[in-house]
Design a protein around this nucleic acid. Structure first.
Lengths: 215, 215
DNA sequence: ACCTGAACACCGTTCAAGT
DNA sequence: ACCTGAACACCGTTCAAGT
């Protein structure tokens, strides 16, 4: 699993193969299959290990717990950006991810006042939000033809007709390479720090808004 | 592009190959390369085409516009669940996605009162939230060993120690296969309708909360 | 203009054989 | 217990050749 993480950090998910993993361990590809049943289970273990360090250690008010959880998740992905699509867009990890993460979050949300169906809704909303922003922020750019791809994105923005797209045109300097769909670099090159703070505020504010009225 | 969407709907992203695409068109694999430069550009066009139908047609208050946008995105992904990871976890689409989508959303957010850096923050928060939930809801399960994988997820939940995980244990019937990390089916089999509504409320409430005070 | 066909450098995985 | 080695059915992409 450690070797797999090294490989993923170095070469990305698209290039991760059992054959490369074996080579990095100085062993024949087929030897790996004595230790693990298949490629997906290697990735599941990688995801589980990475998420271990995301669980907050402190135990503050629920709002701060959630903020801390979001920040820690993003810090982890900054260290391992190539894991972003794996956690955010595949269910592979579900068989291995620690249930402590889940229990702790559920506990915090129920202490906030969510119960029953509301607890489920709030939990799902938090997990979705936790993973959603960062998955997209650190989504990989196409590997083979990255140069051409980057200039296609960039050029069509610079050549944009401000008559046809007035708000976009007016705010282009603020948006170019700093907003989703308008970026030609991923989060490791062009992080969206400010927007992420904004997003976390939105999530916490929205959750407070969702709380059933105290009686 | 139409043939590619058919292939993706039928067999998923993992199985999508230029060779299969060519076969479905009754042609040699290499013939495809006369029409498109590479596999990624096929996928970029697919993403762009799918997102066209997501733009709301009506022009209501910004809160309802955003709700409509979220609902339409989810309806589209319900029709093409295998596109979820492509849009949510890769930047491939950025070179082809229609800028009208962006302009319309920016216009609505600026009409709500967001300007400058706040506009960027709100825009990024909305796009992240829009794609985040649905990407995870419809994330594919491992293809080859789906049976074993499903029972691994299911069995460890059913065998869970309620002493060690009290909140999780107590709410297990509400959570099993209905909450992120605790699911063994994807959104096409086990949709998270209620949680999604909850999530949209959270996002809109959070955005209102984010608005700079009127003067 | 558009397709065939051979070729190259890759994959995950199985299975028999070694030590 | 753990690894080698051959093999199978796949990939994306290039390049020369056909019509």
């Amino acid at each position: 699993v450690r070797a797999a993480i090294r490989e993923l950090d170095a070469n990305g998910l698209a290039s991760f193969s059992i054959r490369n993993l074996a080579a990095s361990l100085g062993v024949y590809p087929t030897a790996v299959y004595w230790h693990i049943p298949n490629r997906n289970l290697v990735l599941a273990e990688v995801v589980a290990r990475a998420l271990e360090e995301v669980i907050p250690e402190k135990d503050p008010a629920w709002q701060d717990y959630i903020r801390e959880l979001f920040l820690r998740y993003r810090v982890m992905i900054k260290k391992h950006p190539n894991l972003a699509p794996l956690i955010g867009a595949h269910l592979i990890g579900n068989s291995s991810i620690s249930l402590s993460l889940v229990e702790r979050l559920l506990f915090k949300l129920s202490s906030a006042g969510f119960t029953g169906e509301n607890l489920v809704g709030a939990y799902n909303a938090v997990i979705a939000a936790l993973v959603g922003f960062v998955t997209q922020e650190f989504a990989p750019i196409p590997k083979e033809d990255s140069r051409e791809w980057q200039s296609r994105v960039k050029d069509r923005l610079l050549a944009l007709d401000p008559q046809a797209y007035p708000v976009l045109g007016k705010n282009l300097p603020l948006l170019a390479n700093k907003a989703f769909i308008l970026r030609w670099q991923s989060g490791d090159q062009a992080p969206l720090d400010k927007s992420f703070d904004c997003y976390v505020d939105m999530v916490i504010g929205g959750l407070e808004n969702l709380l059933p009225p105290r009686h």
